[in-house]
């Protein structure tokens, strides 16, 4: 394993069990179904998928907020899964979360200065006055007025609150920041401000990001590499530019084709592929390929045999028996 890998997950599975329809029965949902990934230092790894695909559950498993059912997660070479809470503590400082909802993730009864200071207090990082000074510094880093530390969350707009959440996540100088839909609750003009801020901070503090979102445009903008999730699994993984130009998986292809675009140039737009039906219940997974019931090109093989996530060319992986754009992908790989 090369030493520039910050976080490595191997075959992570997370199941939830809930009451079944019949009295006394239980059903098991596999929310995350065997995910492996590597996050490299300094990169932004984008994870994209629709609601219920398990992307938030995966995030929680990566930072040990919820225990994995099986598989391992290692941070800078140390296996975290299975560590006691106490042994985990020193590691927790190094990976921080930014949450989706800037209204729910800040305690309304505490001042925003308190909220940002709390991680430092818990970790005994310096005297009260040193922490105070650091809070003010963080506020100006994220573009907020340092004089606002004594105000309460309700006095701030959504975009400002998300800046506060980001300031809190940076307070312990983390190596890795996992952002779970950090801009999906924001208006587009504010979203652009927060995305630019996150890019600046990444440069300034040499941060590594895992960026989870459902918005394909946002993921394209921030990511170096992208994993596409469907029903708890990666169906495609690769460098951002090549995935968006030549998607291999029919699901990725369909996803990209239906994003409403501004037809402000004369470039021909992608042919829209509208996939029918809904995402299956993770408690009742289809046989074979998880996407086959909705896939426009599925065959009998897809119903029976589940395709493995295979490397097609360096930097491109797909789990599909019949990958799309195969020739184009191979051609660009040999020329570059």
């Amino acid at each position: 394993m090369s030493d520039d890998v910050v976080l490595q997950a191997t075959d992570v599975v997370k199941t939830f069990s809930s009451r079944g329809k019949k009295l006394g029965t239980r059903v098991v949902s596999r929310a995350v179904n065997g995910v492996s990934l590597e996050v490299r230092r300094g990169e932004t790894l984008g994870i994209v998928g629709e609601s219920g695909c398990g992307k938030s559950t995966l995030a929680r498993c990566l930072v040990q907020l919820s225990p994995v059912t099986s598989g391992t997660v290692a941070f800078e070479g140390t296996t975290l899964t299975g560590l006691s809470r106490r042994r985990l503590r020193p590691f927790r400082r190094q990976f921080q979360l930014v949450f989706q909802d800037p209204y729910a993730s800040l305690n309304p009864r505490r001042t925003v200065g308190d909220i940002v200071a709390e991680p430092m207090r818990i970790n005994h990082l310096g005297s009260t006055s040193a922490i105070d000074a650091r809070v003010r510094e963080l506020f100006s880093t994220v573009g907020l007025d340092a004089a606002a530390v004594n105000r309460y969350p309700h006095e701030f707009s959504g975009g400002q609150r998300q800046r506060i959440g980001i300031a809190r996540s940076l307070s312990l100088n983390p190596t890795l920041v996992i952002a779970d839909e950090p801009v999906s609750a924001l208006d587009v003009s504010i979203q652009a401000q927060v995305l630019n801020l996150m890019a600046d901070l990444q440069q300034e503090f040499n941060l590594t990001y895992v960026f989870i979102a459902h918005d394909l445009g946002v993921v394209r903008h921030v990511s170096d590499r992208v994993g596409v999730m469907y029903l708890g699994e990666f169906v495609e993984f690769g460098d951002v530019g090549s995935i968006y130009e030549t998607p291999l998986h029919p699901y990725t292809e369909a996803l990209l084709s239906v994003v409403p675009e501004l037809n402000d140039t004369d470039a021909p737009r992608r042919e829209r592929i509208i996939i029918t039906g809904d995402v299956p219940d993770p408690a009742d997974r289809p046989s074979g390929c998880p996407f086959h019931p909705r896939c426009p090109v599925a065959t009998d093989l897809c119903r029976v045999e589940k395709p493995a996530l295979l490397t097609i060319v360096p930097g491109r992986q797909v789990a599909c028996h019949y990958p799309r754009n195969l020739d184009a992908v191979k051609a660009t790989s040999t020329t570059s």
């Binding site: 003009s189 979203q191 652009a192 995305l195 630019n196 394209r220 903008h221 675009e261 501004l262 470039a267």
Partner: peptide
């Protein structure tokens, strides 16, 4: 301000 699918820009233009 809309991040685009067809091109990658280093920075998004924002409304301040």
């Amino acid at each position: 301000a809309v991040p685009r699918l067809d091109a990658k820009h280093d920075r998004l233009r924002t409304i301040r």
